[in-house]
Design a protein around this nucleic acid. Sequence first.
DNA 1: CGCTTGATCTGGAGTTGCTCCAGCATGGCA
DNA 2: TGCCATGCTGGAGCAACTCCAGATCAAGCG
Lengths: 127, 127
Amino acid sequence: MNIAEAASLTGLSIDTIRYYERATMLPSLPRDTRGWRHFDPPALDWLKILERLRATGMPMAEMRRFAQLVFDRNDDAQAAMQERLEILALHRKRLAQKRAELAACERFVDMKIRMYSADLEALNADP
Amino acid sequence: MNIAEAASLTGLSIDTIRYYERATMLPSLPRDTRGWRHFDPPALDWLKILERLRATGMPMAEMRRFAQLVFDRNDDAQAAMQERLEILALHRKRLAQKRAELAACERFVDMKIRMYSADLEALNADP
DNA sequence: CGCTTGATCTGGAGTTGCTCCAGCATGGCA
DNA sequence: TGCCATGCTGGAGCAACTCCAGATCAAGCG
């Protein structure tokens, strides 16, 4: 699978995928004779995971560290697993916080929309 | 009220507030004899609104336009109100989308945490 | 009264996380 | 054989901050 297909299947842009590779956030991608990257299903799955994490605000440094823990040979497997868990637990906290922010903002926007709609109707009635 | 207090009460940083003023996203802020900005309660409320909108992903260009519609004298009041409503409606759509993304990511992270926890226990049991 | 301290000011450089672009290589098709 | 689509790289550009140097100024201290 080429990069265009990988991009369209993951929701990441071609440039973002290349950028993530440079930033060592991807497993090593084999190249064909032309130098084109080849994406296999596991690589695609990893891209989907990254897309999800970045869309919900995980900083790149954390994603990079997470990738390291997943793909590099870590001499202390237990510590590596522990750290992966910590990163995800931290992100879960972020998600809960974001959800609260989102809910508050949704209420606020809905209220404003009702207010503005009323104002607009008043303007219409008495221009 | 000075800028430090405004920052701590709104959750924005001092630099961000100054940046927003330069970017014409704030009502005109009066200065004292030293040139220090003075924040009154309405200005503070506006900052809180901006904080909410940016925290939930409204782009700056949109926030700027929204500020224009709120603070500038618009010769067609009805059209201005209409556009404010459009901006908020667009943002509400974004919020719904973000909420869905967030929920999906939360499920994913929870699943991964359960998986990793099991893996870690296995490592502990049989090191 | 002079001096230091602390908060703010401005203009500009640096950072993150992309996004776009120029210039080049390659393989498939007419 | 020439053309076109697709990919590659290195580097510039952009959004939205964030940080910094150097200056100003009121206030408090001795």
